[in-house]
Measured scan of single mutants.
Amino acid sequence: MTSCHIAEEHIQKVAIFGGTHGNELTGVFLVKHWLENGAEIQRTGLEVKPFITNPRAVKKCTRYIDCDLNRIFDLENLGKKMSEDLPYEVRRAQEINHLFGPKDSEDSYDIIFDLHNTTSNMGCTLILEDSRNNFLIQMFHYIKTSLAPLPCYVYLIEHPSLKYATTRSIAKYPVGIEVGPQPQGVLRADILDQMRKMIKHALDFIHHFNEGKEFPPCAIEVYKIIEKVDYPRDENGEIAAIIHPNLQDQDWKPLHPGDPMFLTLDGKTIPLGGDCTVYPVFVNEAAYYEKKEAFAKTTKLTLNAKSIRCCLH
């Protein structure tokens, strides 16, 4: 018999989150649709729960009410004593943790798909938090293969000092899905179709896995975050240069030392320094102006996964 890495157990509980950011409308629209008619997301033997994560922000069509829901799922915020004085999103995070967690427990949901849009030209993107997770690498390989020839990129946010504390991190297997470009507060049919297909293929993978299909060893190309880059700023902290036209919409493309990065209003080009080629992502993302992030630098690498098969009882 072929030796293989056996994944822990079959997958039982899956959640699909929309509206973690209330103005990213593809996930909101799909989740609302699936709450009314969820036939397309159901798979035999699998509990799939669509869920609106930040209903107040969705109602106002804004990213958040008090603070970013997708950055506060750490033990400090989840452990705060519940009171009306807490920011709305912290209270909501505790409610979500109660419903789908608790985080880092045996009772937490197996998989959470968190649906997002970006204003950046990132196409279909899967966000991975753990480079050693054979199950998710296999799932992402399946999704990428199923979507081809449509490109699907994998963004690895594993980093020693950049801690995200994402909404989906309460699950055993957290999956971020990011599709763009799409303006905030807008629905685009092409973007919706791409996100819908990503979810379909992900659920198909889980179904095949649960039925005992063995997935042979595989490898995927990923883009691992190195650092986030702020806009150049003046002495008052105001933005002093904008994304250069040569960099705009060039997510995932190589940016070499000396290539144009920013452009000042008086026409001066600010190039990339250093001696390493990087791959920019979230270029000129609207939501990241407040976070002082013009783009993120990534490096390209390959992740390998062992063969996996479900432990059938």
Rank of each mutant, 00 (worst) to 15 (best):
G212A: 05
L255I: 13
G258W: 13
G267C: 07
V154D: 01
N134T: 07
Q184E: 13
C311H: 11
Q250H: 08
T119P: 05
I112T: 04
C124A: 12
T62P: 05
Q250W: 06
G101H: 08
R309H: 13
L255K: 05
L30M: 08
S83C: 07
L46C: 15
L312R: 14
A296I: 12
E178M: 06
K163A: 10
I112M: 05
H256W: 06
P280S: 03
N304D: 06
Y231F: 14
I177R: 00
E129Y: 10
E36M: 11
T125C: 10
D114C: 05
D204M: 02
G185L: 04
N133R: 03
H21D: 04
L46D: 01
I220E: 03
C4K: 14
V48D: 01
G101S: 06
I199G: 01
G180N: 03
E89S: 05
T145E: 07
T299F: 11
T167N: 06
K103N: 10
D234A: 11
V278Y: 12
T298M: 06
H207Q: 06
D275H: 15
S120Y: 02
H201M: 07
E36K: 11
I127K: 15
I177H: 02
I52Y: 04
D230E: 13
E84H: 11
R91V: 12
S146H: 11
K224F: 03
K306L: 08
E235C: 13
P174F: 11
S307K: 09
P257H: 04
I220K: 00
K80I: 13
M198L: 11
I52C: 09
A57H: 05
E106M: 12
F262Y: 03
G18R: 02
C152V: 06
E211C: 07
H33N: 08
K306F: 09
V179H: 03
K60F: 10
L86M: 12
I239Q: 10
P254Q: 06
P174M: 10
L187G: 05
S131P: 13
V222G: 05
G22A: 08
D193P: 03
L99D: 12
V14K: 00
K13W: 04
D259A: 06
R233F: 12
F215K: 01
N97W: 09
Y173C: 09
R309I: 08
L30D: 01
D130C: 05
K300S: 05
I226Q: 08
Q194D: 07
N304A: 11
K200V: 10
N304F: 10
L69P: 08
H21C: 11
C4T: 12
N117L: 03
D104I: 07
S146T: 06
G45A: 10
R56H: 08
V278T: 10
P160A: 10
N236E: 11
A171E: 00
K253T: 09
T299G: 08
D204A: 03
I112C: 09
F113P: 02
D204V: 02
W34F: 07
F100P: 06
R233K: 12
P257I: 05
W252G: 12
S169F: 06
P271G: 10
M198Y: 00
N236M: 09
P271W: 06
E293I: 09
L69E: 09
T119W: 01
L99H: 11
C124T: 06
P102F: 07
N210G: 04
I137M: 07
A7P: 07
Y231D: 03
P271C: 07
L75V: 08
P271E: 08
G185T: 04
H10G: 14
T125M: 07
N97A: 08
N121D: 04
R71N: 11
E106C: 09
L35C: 06
L255Y: 05
Y288V: 07
G19P: 01
K253W: 05
I52F: 05
H244G: 00
M261I: 10
M198K: 00
N246P: 01
I127Y: 15
F262D: 03
K13G: 03
I220N: 00
T269N: 13
K172P: 09
I199K: 00
S161R: 14
F113N: 02
R196C: 03
H313V: 12
E214F: 13
P55W: 09
I72A: 10
I52Q: 03
L126W: 01
T119R: 02
I137H: 00
R91D: 09
C67I: 09
K103E: 07
D107F: 15
G273M: 13
Q94Y: 12
E84F: 15
K49D: 12
C310Q: 08
G212S: 04
I112A: 07
E227R: 04
E8W: 14
D251K: 01
F205Y: 05
P181S: 04
L272E: 04
L192T: 08
T20V: 03
V278M: 08
S83Q: 11
I308E: 04
Q94E: 10
K49N: 12
E214G: 07
R63W: 04
H33E: 12
D66A: 11
Y223E: 00
T2R: 14
H256Y: 07
H201A: 12
P151W: 03
I239H: 04
Q42Y: 11
P254I: 05
E129S: 10
K144L: 15
T2Q: 13
H21K: 05
C276D: 14
P232M: 04
R233P: 03
T167K: 08
K292H: 15
K297R: 07
P217K: 07
L150M: 14
N77Q: 08
F113G: 02
L301Q: 09
G27W: 02
F282T: 05
Q194S: 12
F209M: 04
L30S: 00
